[in-house]
Structures are given as structure tokens and as C-alpha cells.
């Protein structure tokens, strides 16, 4: 579910050009839009461009927004388009429409079987752990990363993600599974190596 807003935004006021309501909308949704930009582009500067372009675009087109989807879904759709446009500009070699993305059988088989799930929080969420997580997210192909960011980072439902990206629910589920397994594989490789380091450090301390 998209987080409920503290006080429901008034579409009527927004469409009538009520600037106080617009400012409220910007404050309610700027954090998720900024995070989406950060996750998709990987740099604060690009995230700020996504943020500014999304709300410029949204405020310009508010009068045309018919309210068939929620304001949140509508803003996520604009933000996703802005992020993808910027990715195309920054990395023209990236093929965002990777056909394999929706192939349920492509690249699913796990190869890493180290169980790092019991590691303590202070290890997993240390500066180094967070860096490894961010780096792993950046290795996801863009079309999988977009679904993953919306569903798992921002907590949208399958339907909300599908609506925002113009995909079917089945496509979203397939991409989500692939994204989760890809990330798990990366993190498992990282923690397998990390635990070897820790064991070596322990041994050295003991000798």
C-alpha cells in the first residue's frame, strides 16, 4: 500500500491551482520521488533532477489529471518516466526494454547457498553493509530495478506498481521475483566473502 497521506490531498483544490495544496503535495511525495531517483540513477545530482522534473511536469499537467488513479500512482508514473528518460540520456547503451525481463524462466537458478540471514543487524546495516546493498541494487537491470524499488523499497502493491509502469500484474510479479533473486545472489556472494574475512580476522586475533 502507498502510505496514506497525513491529511488527504484535495484533488479539487489541486486542479483549481491552490498553491498551498500544491506545496503540501510536493512535501508529501518528494521523499519517495527523490529516493526513486536515487535508486534508479545512483547519484544525488540525478535524483534531484528527477525530483524537480517530476514535480514541474506534475504541476503543469495537474488540470489534465482525471483522478482515475490515485495521486500517488500518477506521481510515481511521472517519476518513473523522468528517471527512465534520464537513464537513456546518461547511458544510451542501456537497453531498457530487455526482452528477457518478462521471461519467467530466465536467470532464476541460485548458485550461492551461504545462509547469512542470521548475521546481526549491526553487521548487515554497518556502513560497509549498506554500501554493499546499494551497490547490489545498482547492478539490477533498469527494468527490474524500477519494479523492485516501487514494490520493495517504497512498498507499493503489485497493482499500484503495474498501474504506475503500465505493466500487467503478471509482468510485475515476474520482474519482482527476478530482481529479488538477483539481489539475493549478489548479497550472498558478498557475505560469503565477508564471513571468510571475519574468520581469518578471528584466527589472527587468537594467534
Amino acid at each position: 500500500m502507498i502510505n496514506p497521506t497525513p491529511q488527504e490531498l484535495s484533488l479539487e483544490k489541486l486542479r483549481a491551482g491552490d498553491r498551498a495544496e500544491m506545496a503540501r503535495m510536493v512535501d508529501v511525495f518528494s521523499a519517495p520521488v527523490y529516493r526513486l531517483g536515487l535508486r534508479m540513477l545512483g547519484s544525488p545530482q540525478d535524483a534531484e533532477d528527477v525530483l524537480q522534473n517530476t514535480f514541474m511536469n506534475a504541476l503543469t499537467h495537474l488540470s489534465e489529471f482525471e483522478g482515475r488513479s490515485s495521486i500517488a500512482t500518477w506521481l510515481y508514473r511521472i517519476a518513473a518516466n523522468e528517471a527512465l528518460m534520464l537513464i537513456r540520456r546518461r547511458k544510451p547503451e542501456v537497453n531498457i526494454e530487455d526482452l528477457q525481463a518478462d521471461d519467467p524462466d530466465a536467470g532464476l537458478m541460485p548458485t550461492q547457498f551461504v545462509d547469512w540471514s542470521g548475521l546481526p543487524e549491526n553487521e548487515l546495516l554497518s556502513e560497509e553493509g549498506k554500501k554493499a546493498l546499494d551497490a547490489a541494487i545498482q547492478t539490477l537491470p533498469e527494468n527490474l530495478r524500477m519494479v523492485f524499488v516501487m514494490r520493495d523499497v517504497e512498498g507499493l502493491s503489485i497493482k499500484e506498481t503495474a498501474d504506475a509502469l503500465g505493466l500487467t500484474g503478471t509482468n510485475v510479479k515476474t520482474r519482482l521475483l527476478r530482481a529479488r533473486l538477483h539481489l539475493r545472489e549478489r548479497l550472498s556472494a558478498y557475505y560469503a566473502e565477508r564471513s571468510q574475512h571475519l574468520i581469518r580476522e578471528d584466527k589472527n586475533d587468537g594467534s
Binding site: V114, D115, W116, S117, G118, L124, L125, G129, L133, I137, D152, V153, R180, L181, L183, R184, L187, S188
Partner: peptide, 10 residues
């Protein structure tokens, strides 16, 4: 377990 943990972390 590790997939669940991955989702928890993000």
C-alpha cells in the same frame, strides 16, 4: 531465508 532478509534490509 536470505531472500526474506534481503527484502527486510532494503
Amino acid at each position: 531465508n536470505t531472500t526474506r532478509r534481503t527484502i527486510d534490509l532494503v
